[in-house]
């Protein structure tokens, strides 16, 4: 009985992680600009990884392995903002213009 509850809770966490992975990928496809795509990839993946790792830890139970599981989100929570910030700063330094909604509306009015 307890084992069944454990498996159901773990599956719920894994499915929630998959949901955030899916939104991250859809955002990468749908957003119009490189800065907006960074919003999608950097953070949906981080939360998805955290949720899936929590699901794995609940499924596996507690022993020495679960400390190793903790190391991955701990590292990712430091690395993922660094990567996102680094790519964004490279975009600013290269002079990429951010996409804005009002400009497209203006061009539509002109045309």
């Amino acid at each position: 009985m307890l084992h069944t509850i454990q498996i159901i809770v773990a599956g719920f966490f894994i499915l929630a992680g998959l949901f955030f992975f899916t939104t991250a990928t859809l955002g990468l496809l749908r957003f119009p600009d490189f800065y907006c795509r960074l919003h999608a990839t950097g953070k949906g993946d981080t939360l998805g990884t955290l949720l899936m790792i929590v699901g794995f830890m609940i499924y596996e139970g507690f022993h020495l392995l679960s400390i190793k599981f903790v190391l991955i989100p701990l590292f990712l929570f430091m690395a993922s903002p660094t990567v996102t910030h680094s790519i964004g700063r490279a975009g600013v330094s290269c002079g990429v213009e951010p996409w804005e909604k009002k400009e497209t509306e203006k061009t539509e009015e002109v045309s």
């Binding site: 800065y35 919003h39 953070k43 949906g44 981080t46 996102t84 964004g88 700063r89």
Partner: peptide
């Protein structure tokens, strides 16, 4: 880092 981790805002 907190600004970047909170979705919707990234520090550039």
């Amino acid at each position: 880092n907190s600004i970047t981790l909170t979705p919707g805002t990234i520090t550039i």
